[in-house]
């Protein structure tokens, strides 16, 4: 598939959050402020690309040659969790500024469903390594976009007059549903 089409597809048509419903916990939990949402999005991009690289190698070098495909989910979870832990320690020691920016989000997305979802999706679609990395990057870019949009709306919602029963997470869920519906307008444009 063309790289540009893949970009449009991953960000708008098959948005990982709004069309595939992966990673909804940070979508609701980290979307109260735009700054936090951006940090979370950046952390997801960072982790998703690294996790995809590792799990791709794991799949091609370990799982497939020994016919262990049925252990994919378990192995991926284990590998991603260990990787994120390692990266957190590495950043803390070697790149403190980056750790300051992303550090608090890293433990939050240890095997987050979006990250695991991307790693498994690239295997299902049988991409090569380069394509897998590109897909994981644009898919998490789509995640960041959705998160930022949601945060922008929720910053406005804070000062809206809402019935008590709708305040907070409830209106967040309603918003998430409406945003998902809006993104369905893109459905079917690209496979």
């Amino acid at each position: 598939m063309d790289y540009f089409l893949m970009l449009i597809s991953a960000i708008f048509v098959n948005n990982i959050l709004l069309a595939q419903y992966l990673g909804n916990c940070p979508f609701l939990g980290c979307s109260k402020e735009k700054g936090v949402a951006f940090g979370m999005g950046a952390a997801v991009i960072f982790v998703a690309v690294m996790a995809t690289a590792f799990t791709w190698i794991m799949q091609k070098w370990v799982l497939e040659p020994y016919g262990l495909g049925y252990l994919q989910t378990l192995v991926f979870i284990l590998v991603i969790a260990a990787l994120v832990q390692f990266v957190e320690m590495f950043l803390k020691k070697m790149v403190p500024p980056l750790y300051k920016a992303l550090g608090i989000f890293l433990p939050l997305i240890t095997t987050n469903c979006a990250v695991l979802g991307i790693a498994i999706l690239v295997q299902r679609k049988e991409f090569g390594l380069g394509m897998s990395l590109y897909y994981s990057f644009v898919a998490s870019l789509g995640f960041t976009l959705a998160l930022m949009l949601m945060a922008g709306i929720r910053e406005r919602l804070v000062i809206a007059r809402l019935p008590k029963s709708l305040q907070g997470t409830s209106i967040g869920l309603v918003m998430a549903g409406l945003m998902s519906l809006t993104f369905f307008a893109f459905k079917g444009m690209i496979e």
């Binding site: 020994y66 262990l68 049925y70 252990l71 378990l74 192995v75 284990l78 590998v79 969790a81 260990a82 832990q85 390692f86 320690m89 590495f90 803390k92 020691k93 070697m94």
Partner: peptide
């Protein structure tokens, strides 16, 4: 048995890497 062994081995490998890393990369 095979899956058990694979997961066990993988888990051990990961924990070994993390254990070494936590010593090497410890921040004062």
């Amino acid at each position: 048995l095979q899956s058990l062994l694979v997961m066990l081995g993988l888990g051990l490998a990961c924990s070994a890497v993390l254990a070494v890393a936590s010593k090497l990369l410890a921040v004062e």
